[in-house]
């Protein structure tokens, strides 16, 4: 083949620009630490990455939801436990009052204690969590019970997303725990007991004892309901965490460049560029040697 001068210079230029292109790519990978710097670097990987990243971001949303509802459910559970204690105390007092041999003045003071316990129970039932009043059903902006113990909420379930396609009920019905919907209207029962004690009405007092026994088991049932719901959310949380870890590892496999490989590649390309420059220099100096001298 006949070799003209422009062929030689063109081929020098072409090989220099080719190795320099590769150097640019290698240095981009090494400096960003990312294998995929544009979708064209790996179209299928980029598409997978977009999916994985969407799932990760969705996962963080689930995680924050789980945090919120876990807090509220824990608070619900402990509130109900306190409520059981309060009701049981009232029950004790009622049992003493039902004895028949209690002097009238003591009955008055017992009625006072019941009134105290009632307002204590009211404040427990009107407990507020991160998402509003815990026992108001869907009426989270309204206190569950009025000062006179009238239920102001509803019996609705509130649900939240705790995983992909995994919804959980995140409240315990205040209606079921404290009102006639669950069997006994606890506040009405306490009011009745208080009246019975004040008026020294033995039948009323013993009816109160029965009502409170029922109320206690009713609230305990609600408490265990809260426990079951909390368990469910906790399980969802651990599933969520595992999924998130798996997703993040996939993301890193797809997107992150292996540093050792990236730097080796960069070094190789730097050497290649240096060699290409040296070779070009030799060729060019041969070409421009004093041929016509």
């Amino acid at each position: 083949m006949r070799i003209s001068d422009s062929m030689q210079t063109d081929s020098i230029l072409a090989s220099l620009s080719s190795v320099e292109n590769q150097l640019t790519t290698a240095s981009q990978v090494a400096s960003t630490g990312q294998k995929i710097n544009a979708p064209s670097d790996d179209p299928i990987g980029a598409a997978q990455l977009a999916r994985v990243q969407a799932a990760i971001s969705q996962g963080s949303a689930y995680a924050s939801t789980i945090n919120t509802v876990q807090g509220d459910l824990t608070m619900t559970e402990s509130s109900l436990a306190s409520a059981v204690t309060v009701v049981q105390s009232a029950q004790q007092i009622a049992l003493e009052g039902a004895n028949g041999s209690v002097p009238a003045s003591d009955l008055q003071s017992m009625a006072g204690q019941i009134s105290q316990l009632q307002s204590q129970l009211l404040s427990i039932a009107n407990q507020k969590g991160a998402t509003g009043y815990l026992f108001s059903g869907s009426q989270t902006g309204t206190a569950a019970f009025s000062a006179t113990g009238v239920f102001q909420g509803d019996d609705a379930d509130r649900v939240a997303d705790v995983g992909a396609g995994n919804t959980a009920v995140v409240n315990v019905s205040g209606a079921q725990a404290f009102t006639a919907a669950g069997g006994v209207d606890v506040f009405a029962a306490l009011t009745a007991l208080q009246t019975a004690l004040t008026t020294n009405d033995p039948t009323g007092i013993s009816a109160g004892v029965n009502a409170l026994t029922q109320a206690s088991s009713q609230i305990t049932a609600a408490e265990s309901d809260a426990g079951i719901k909390l368990d469910r959310v906790t399980t969802a949380a651990s599933v969520q965490q595992q999924t998130q870890v798996a997703l993040q590892s996939t993301e890193s496999t797809l997107a992150t460049a292996d540093p050792a490989q990236a730097y080796t590649q960069l070094q190789t390309m730097e050497n290649a560029v240096q060699q290409a420059i040296d070779t070009s220099r030799i060729t060019l100096s041969t070409l421009s040697a004093n041929r016509f001298g």
Partner: peptide, 21 residues
């Protein structure tokens, strides 16, 4: 657009946890 799209759906997820906030 991956981030804005998933942020949109995530915001509904947060809303479900705390609808009155």
């Amino acid at each position: 657009l991956a981030a804005p799209i998933s942020a949109l759906f995530s915001s509904f997820s947060s809303l479900a946890a705390n609808p009155t906030d």
